[in-house]
Write a protein that binds this DNA or RNA. Structure first.
Lengths: 141, 141
DNA sequence: CCGTAATCTTGACTGGTTCCAGAAACTGAG
DNA sequence: CTCAGTTTCTGGAACCAGTCAAGATTACGG
């Protein structure tokens, strides 16, 4: 149950200015996990009818950079945002309808951070996407 | 050292028509692993100067659907293609310059196909992307 | 060699995202 | 509280990978 005052504090703690659009965007992301930008714009305009799409794009980018929200963009799909951050969870994506569900990491804390051979790269994150069909799109048994 | 005749056979074996653009595209993907569409268009036009970008897009989609090439599209980057298929390998992507390297799966054959909780999805593939900095982009020690 | 159906060419177009310049709002100092 | 300085927001236009559509061309089985 995050309230606006909690969102305001999150912004302040992240050393970000507390503006109406940012609070509304942060609130919308918490209320609609895995929503795409368009849906977030709609949700934000439910409160602040006059915000520009640009303000929402800017806010999302700022919040993502600050680590308050996480951007998710599976191949070929538009960007989506979620509020679960820092817990190393992954996603299951439906090939048919694009629905996204959270999946906790099977191996525990930070399992997948090591590739068999890192090819000299300094790896800082492992992202796992499971592809399949959601219950609604699966051929009925 | 795959030759054109080998590519022709691959197309035929996949029940696809053997056309000049397709052979050239297949050849280009083999010659330039992880190349994006634009680079493939350039490579193809080195042989067939008159091919349209549309023909390349169509060929890439057809070849991908037939499993002869694999499409890779990390978040926020343009689509790339590679010729290694069916061996369950993953990718390491540089956050700075977008370079991509192959990474063999740490766990072996088909390791990651099971999430801790599949949420009712019928999962058929697990895609892993390691994010980091390539040797060229790492801050020199 | 022919007919049919798939494929290619040309050119315009889409949709998500970003860029730009000016107006407005927020913050800290006085 | 007020002002100046900085950041953010608005509105509109631009951008780019990728897609769509109609007609010409090509591959392949018979």
């Amino acid at each position: 149950m995050s309230s606006d005052s909690a969102f305001r504090r999150m912004l302040r703690d992240a050393a970000l200015r507390v503006t109406r659009p940012r609070v509304a965007v942060l609130s919308a992301v918490h209320a609609h996990p895995h929503a795409d930008t368009e849906a977030i714009i709609d949700a934000v305009r439910g409160r602040l009818p006059k915000v520009s799409h640009q303000a929402v794009y800017d806010s999302l980018r700022t919040l993502t950079a600050a680590g308050l929200v996480r951007r998710v963009q599976p191949s070929g799909l538009v960007a989506r945002y979620e509020s679960r951050v820092g817990d190393n969870h992954h996603h299951i994506v439906c090939r048919s309808c694009g629905a996204i569900a959270d999946a906790d990491c099977r191996a525990g804390a930070a399992p997948c951070l090591t590739a068999a051979d890192d090819r000299g790269f300094a790896i800082d994150e492992a992202e796992i996407v499971y592809w399949g069909l959601c219950p609604g799109c699966s051929p009925s048994p």
